[in-house]
Amino acid sequence: MESRDADIRPTFYQLLQLDAHGLWARIHAASDDREKARYAAAMAVRSVLLVAFAILFIGVLGGVFGQENSGLVVAGFCVLLGIKFVPYGYHIGDSLLALALTFALMVAGGVVALAGSPALGLAANFAFVALILVMVANDPPMGNAGVYVFGYLFVSQTPVSGDALAARIVLAAVLVALCGAVLYHKHRAKFADVRLAHLFRDFSLDDEKCLWQLRLAAGVAGAIWIGGLLGLPRDVWVGYACMSVLLPYEEDRAGLRHRGAQRIGGVVVGSLLFNLFAAIVPPQAQVLFGPLAGICIGFSKKYFWNNVLNCFGALLLATSVYGLTGSVALRIVDNLVGVLFALAFVAILTFLEDHVRAARGRTAA
């Protein structure tokens, strides 16, 4: 038995490919303290390497293409990490096309935002996010939808024009090449008989997956629209909060309410902790908040604590514009609006769906 366990014992490199959930599961299941320490070490090394890679990747591309395009760089970084493990579920040629279209829609969303029309923005955000989800979130439980919706929001809600827009287009092409190379290398032999056209052909309002995609797209677009109507600065935070609540697949209303409460609780705790640390840590050292929070996220498997830690990077960027107190208050208010909108949106949709089912039942009878 010991020999067999030794044969299947994962290498340290293989352990680095696991996320926090997988590594914590191994730590809890291990009976040997040395194995527990090995898994903990893998988690620590993985977290440090991810943060170091993020700093290098974002620093280099942000320096080349301008800090105003750093949102697209961050989106590309997230896609690059996820696409290694989660393919799109259809032919590699079509997958590469979908990848290119996804980045094009991120850029296009920013161009639409420049028009300054709330109605046009609402329609475009819904259409673009829905199209992205149909193309990339063919298997919702895999969780990659959040990466792409986050990327779309980050890019589309930081619009640029002129030379910066030209640089953004070139940057998008670079990111498509980088992510496409990983996608092709890892998944080129998979799903050869499934084509992208099949997904659009089979799209149906009777399919729970399709309804989830539309719900998420409509919710996120509506949250950004509401944030704009309310005149909330940094209304992209409203969109992030709404997305975070609506993201789980096949979650009931009670589960979504619990998730919304965790989101708000995490944001309040994270914002207050940031305010505390910012008051006692010298300004020149506060630049470390982001990397240190990123390393800690590598150890976290809890949604609540992820929200706490995410506040540090978000608020670090916002304080230069809104000040410390203003950023903390804005972070809490924007997230509260986003969560309440998401829950109200789900309640309305549930009522309408129940009404339609009842009507169908009466018609069938």
Score class of each variant (00 low, 15 high):
124 A>G: 04
129 V>W: 07
131 L>V: 13
131 L>W: 13
134 V>C: 01
137 A>S: 14
138 N>T: 15
140 P>K: 07
142 M>C: 01
143 G>D: 04
143 G>E: 06
146 G>K: 03
147 V>C: 02
149 V>M: 05
150 F>G: 07
157 Q>G: 00
158 T>K: 02
159 P>A: 12
160 V>N: 09
161 S>M: 01
162 G>F: 09
163 D>K: 05
165 L>W: 07
165 L>V: 10
166 A>F: 09
166 A>D: 14
167 A>T: 06
168 R>W: 05
168 R>V: 09
172 A>N: 04
173 A>G: 06
175 L>H: 11
178 L>W: 07
178 L>I: 15
179 C>T: 12
179 C>M: 05
180 G>S: 07
182 V>Q: 03
183 L>S: 09
186 K>W: 10
190 K>Q: 13
196 L>Y: 10
199 L>R: 15
202 D>E: 14
204 S>C: 03
204 S>W: 05
204 S>R: 06
210 C>K: 05
212 W>K: 05
213 Q>F: 00
214 L>I: 15
215 R>E: 15
220 V>E: 03
220 V>N: 04
224 I>Q: 13
224 I>A: 13
226 I>Y: 08
226 I>Q: 04
227 G>I: 09
232 L>P: 00
233 P>V: 03
234 R>E: 13
235 D>T: 10
239 G>R: 00
241 A>Q: 07
244 S>D: 02
246 L>N: 05
246 L>V: 05
248 P>Y: 09
249 Y>L: 07
252 D>G: 09
254 A>Q: 14
257 R>A: 10
257 R>Y: 11
